[in-house]
Design a protein around this nucleic acid. Sequence first.
DNA 1: TTATACAATTGATTTAAATCAAATGTTCTA
DNA 2: TAGAACATTTGATTTAAATCAATTGTATAA
Lengths: 253, 253
Amino acid sequence: MLKLSIMAVELKRDNVRCELAKGDDLGHTRCALCGIRPYSFCRCLNEDELKVFSKISSERMFSDKQNIFLQQEKSKNLYNITEGNIKIYQLLTDGRLQIIGFLYPGDFFGSYRQGKYNYSAQAIGNVKVCVFNETTLNKHLEKNPKLSRELLNITANELTLAQDRIRVLGKLTATERMANFILNISDQRARIKWQDNPVSLPMNRQDIADYLGLTIATVSREITRLKTSNIIKVLSASQIYINDRTKLSLLCT
Amino acid sequence: MLKLSIMAVELKRDNVRCELAKGDDLGHTRCALCGIRPYSFCRCLNEDELKVFSKISSERMFSDKQNIFLQQEKSKNLYNITEGNIKIYQLLTDGRLQIIGFLYPGDFFGSYRQGKYNYSAQAIGNVKVCVFNETTLNKHLEKNPKLSRELLNITANELTLAQDRIRVLGKLTATERMANFILNISDQRARIKWQDNPVSLPMNRQDIADYLGLTIATVSREITRLKTSNIIKVLSASQIYINDRTKLSLLCT
DNA sequence: TTATACAATTGATTTAAATCAAATGTTCTA
DNA sequence: TAGAACATTTGATTTAAATCAATTGTATAA
């Protein structure tokens, strides 16, 4: 018991170190030239275009629970996360809420074409985003095939993830969903060069429930179950250490 | 009882008329120049490109339950449906199956970039598809911003639909899913200029269940419930007449 | 037409997850 | 440092949908 608690502190400190280091490590999502704009985008631009983009894209900050936009609003911007996490969600008329996705630094959200936003976006903790005006972006897309192609790749990746989520929500049990969720978060963190074990969950239990199509009670019970079977250690409510990745993978079918 | 049965015959005949007419009406998804290639694509091409596309794109036919490709396969083609319906699905290791989507004429599926297919695709009834080779298509995408943009629009639409399905599978009850499903099919048919009431369901109950994350028993019971409350008439297993669209909409939340 | 195979419906029962509610843990403020 | 406010866990019970199983309906072929 004591040993675990000491371990938790060590891991936590290690995690903090990693989280601090991550700022420096965000180069792969930020453009080396401008600092705030995403690299994948800037890579597609020539110098003149880059100048225009320096004008049309700007950085904005949001704090916990602040909405970046709402579903019914006329769409105006495409966003790229440079720091923090956001959740995108849809609200039903009776107040039920479905979280479509949790997004990480480097992820895009919003819209690049006229219409309404397809979901609402809300900050989880402090967030920095890079904003691209829809209209201006569109002018560039028409002329610049590299940029179109880049955005096409981004959208296609999102589609793959969405289709994966359809499988999870349509067929998996609560246990399987939870296992899948923890592994996904770990993989996601590895992808952006963050410490992938233990994983910190920036969202609360209600968010996890709304994401997995479950209730907080079930989410809590499933975490307890994984803990009891020694597959994970719960360092704190928001810090999960994966003890046995193989067993966790087996639970995802 | 007798009256309903006569009505059913009339509606059926009317439906057949409409289904026959649809063949002529497919112009909006087919290119006026080539007949088999999708219009939206060809609209983006100049004459030279169109010639190349005439070489790289070809029409293929599939019959009921034939697989067009499987999930684990190395991706080779992007497909466009010119006739019939297909289902795209993911298979779990233990045999559970989740249908990601039912596709209609005009819809695209498959892949346009190297990798593996993200789902399997199977014909529902007789199907004609227009095939685009991935590699060749990619060469054009790099040069032709209109084409990239068109494919971007197509992919973005698919993403919107997928995110909608996440909401349905995550939060809606069986009744709501069923109501949503029938309305969606009706809207989808309207979109491609087919008769939107009654709607014919090309897929069987098992497919509907695997699409909605339910079982055939539940699907059947929900249909019976909608029938009993006079919201729909069940003309045959695969022919649903929407009696009260307003009530059906209200059930979708 | 009748037999056969298959698809869909319906009934009885079970079960996984929801709901309701209390207890425990954590964080923030005065 | 207490205590208020909130988040999480856990327990007891209910419920929506699954499961299991039988029946009915609908095509297809002999």
